[in-house]
Design a protein around this nucleic acid. Sequence first.
DNA 1: GATATATTCCCCCTCTGCGGGTGATTTGCA
DNA 2: TGCAAATCACCCGCAGAGGGGGAATATATC
Lengths: 210, 210
Amino acid sequence: MKRDLDIHVAIIEDDETIREGYAFLIGNTEGYKVVGTYPSYEDAAKRIVKDNPDVILLDVELPGISGIDALPKLKKILPDTHILILTVYEQEMLIFRALGSGAAGYLTKNTPADKIVAAIHEVMEGGGPMSAHIARMVISSFKRNESTPLTRRETEILEQIATGKSRKRIAEELFIDLETVKSHIKNIYHKLNVHSKADAIKAAKDNKFI
Amino acid sequence: MKRDLDIHVAIIEDDETIREGYAFLIGNTEGYKVVGTYPSYEDAAKRIVKDNPDVILLDVELPGISGIDALPKLKKILPDTHILILTVYEQEMLIFRALGSGAAGYLTKNTPADKIVAAIHEVMEGGGPMSAHIARMVISSFKRNESTPLTRRETEILEQIATGKSRKRIAEELFIDLETVKSHIKNIYHKLNVHSKADAIKAAKDNKFI
DNA sequence: GATATATTCCCCCTCTGCGGGTGATTTGCA
DNA sequence: TGCAAATCACCCGCAGAGGGGGAATATATC
């Protein structure tokens, strides 16, 4: 029986128990069909294009090419396929690299079975499923530090500097004198204990002042 | 009967029907207690500190001071209170301003009642609840443009420039000659059709090349 | 093995920008 | 009525930015 209205799912996961567990779970859910399971990216690369999944569940810790490195390659050969990261790792760097490479969602492996199926559905509907802790980390990455030593104007000027603009251009765009901008920058440097643009930007970003 | 183990919730929402609806819903859920409902930030400011909620449901479209502007003020007077945005608006600018000001989550008003209660619980557990579409927008904000005209090295160097570093410093940190950095920058400027640092950074960020 | 493409380095040129010192005025909020 | 914030001024020396041209190695990809 052909089931073309089903959501076609592929799984890339090296642990056979987990891989077959997911395959069983998803394959036995109404509306879902597992079109391929692969223990590594190298294996997936051979068959995944003709298996043509709608959604890929991708592990990050894979033998050979890691899931993180596999992600952009998969997006290249299957541009319209949604990729859901499924991992035990919660390191910020991995998360943001994955999302930057085009992951549609990021789930941890303690996610209960029904939530994984729900996440696949959510991805198809244009959502971005994330585990609770991951979502908080992502949200936190936007949060400014409210206890900045910089005044509003100083913050504004440092933001402009961070876009690469010259002092002269900043002065023009803020309708103030070049000397005023210089004065603000001197105060910024003193407050942040730095002596250059680059160090000021770094200090401010590290402390989420900008 | 005192119920100190309950999660204390406050609601700031100008529409009385919606406000009382939420209050009724949450107040009648085991484990939750509504400690205050206010039609505006100005009203909330008078009583919310002594009401001392664990979680605030905050509307963005409020009369007087908007929810977005109220958020940093609320964080200031109640630093440990989690704030959940509840709104009909899905504009990127509002979302990122809210998250930048310290919102713990962002829900749209079509969120079913049980999900709202679940979101309050999730926030208390360190999660970051978001409506599906919001989550996708947040994730998309991290996504790089895979069809960049820049090479890997050019992208790397442009990223360094965007941190405010001088060409000389970039050369030292990448262990290449200053002339090489200059050469890359010339190529970057040609590819992006710009003639300055600031314009290159802007063009690259607009197109998500960096 | 041939052909692109990426990466590396070299020379020339002008001129603007950057970092730092010191001090003064006006504006707004508590 | 203060104090912090924001504004503008003039000093100095040095490094950096932008643009012209050319050319030698990797490194893929076919």
